[in-house]
Amino acid sequence: MKVIEVLKPGQLTVGERPMPAAPVGGEVVVKIKAAGICGSDVHIFHGQNPFATYPRILGHEAVGEVYQAGAEVKDLKPGDRVAIDNVFSCGRCYACRSNRHNVCREVKVLGVHIDGVFQEYIKITADKLYKLPADLPWEMAATVEPYSIAAEAVDRAGVTKDDTVLVCGAGPIGLVILQASKRLGARVAVMDIVASRLERAKAMGADLTINTRETDLLEAVREFAGGEGVNIVMEATGNIGVLELAVAKLVSQAGKVIVLGFPVEPAKIVPADIMRRELDIKGSRLNNKKFPEVIRWLAGKEVDPTGLVTHVLPFTDAAKAMELFANNPEEVCKIILRFD
């Protein structure tokens, strides 16, 4: 079978691997049908992801069809359509015991720490598979994992209909957080520096878009939030300056800053800014068993991924897709690779 593998930073190949061995016990072999390219895949390709190891089969956003199932698998059979949860945890550490397995001390993620989903077939345990509606196209179903990131973020923030939310970054993650927040009834502003991405955010439900190349962000936020800061800032740019501004000036009294970007350089944050407004600053990483919830959103048309997917390419064009993603932010949002 064919796999998409980064041998070392900058060297990507479509290679050959043996088919997975027949599944036993609770194992399932899934035939991959569609998989999304994430910014983290591109960072791994370019050697810019601090968590990645090499060589590595990429990919963590995939859906497919059950090909074979082990004898102990009761709820899945060949032909079933499934989404693949990409998070693996130890089940023993404090985070796991606290029902936060997504930040397990030994967490492993498909396509980052262990070989991922950019392969024609993958063997995985049945507990990582969730059935998909029969009428959900493969390209749209492949957005389940990004929407699970949004489900985690709005859960961490406790978004309600009474909140004003600023989403920093109108890339794929910012856009799914926008829709997840609007689903809960919040008023949502989205900031970015790419006009076409802001146009997409507006089309996907943003109450306000802010191009910070043209508009003062602090002034726009104060006007949007009625003279005070927004209640919740979702920081998805990975820009240290944006995070610093969010804590210092953008968020309201008793507000929350949810950190999704992961730059490694230190930020200059004044503890008094946190204390005097009693701010909550929280990380949001991966997803904590959010797939069933997100699949219900998609089945009930509570979110709409059609504005998210801009390109669908055959998986053999993976190198072209990576460069397209990296070099064309005005044109590209979510690229889906098809495996049939």
Rank of each mutant, 00 (worst) to 15 (best):
I281S: 10
I32R: 09
G185S: 11
M1Y: 01
F51I: 09
A157R: 00
I193G: 02
S89C: 09
V165S: 01
C90F: 04
G70I: 01
K182F: 07
L337V: 08
I4W: 04
M275T: 10
A186M: 06
P18N: 11
L208M: 15
R97S: 15
Q253K: 14
T164F: 02
N86T: 03
A69K: 04
D340R: 13
V159N: 03
G116Y: 03
K334D: 10
V3N: 03
I84E: 07
I84M: 08
K123H: 10
P305F: 14
L245P: 00
D304W: 06
G307Y: 10
D273G: 03
E199F: 01
G261A: 06
C93N: 13
D162H: 07
F51Q: 14
K2G: 02
A299K: 15
W138V: 02
G261K: 01
K2W: 02
R296T: 14
I232E: 07
G158K: 02
F339D: 10
C333M: 15
G300T: 11
L129Y: 09
D135C: 09
L129S: 04
P263K: 13
R92M: 02
F315D: 06
V264A: 12
D216G: 13
K31R: 15
V309I: 14
T13R: 13
P18S: 11
I295A: 09
I269P: 08
K268R: 12
E244T: 07
G10E: 06
V63T: 11
A225E: 02
K282N: 12
G227D: 14
N99A: 11
V159Q: 06
V24S: 14
G283N: 02
K268F: 09
V259S: 13
A34M: 04
D340I: 11
S196W: 00
P133K: 12
D304T: 07
G171I: 03
D280I: 03
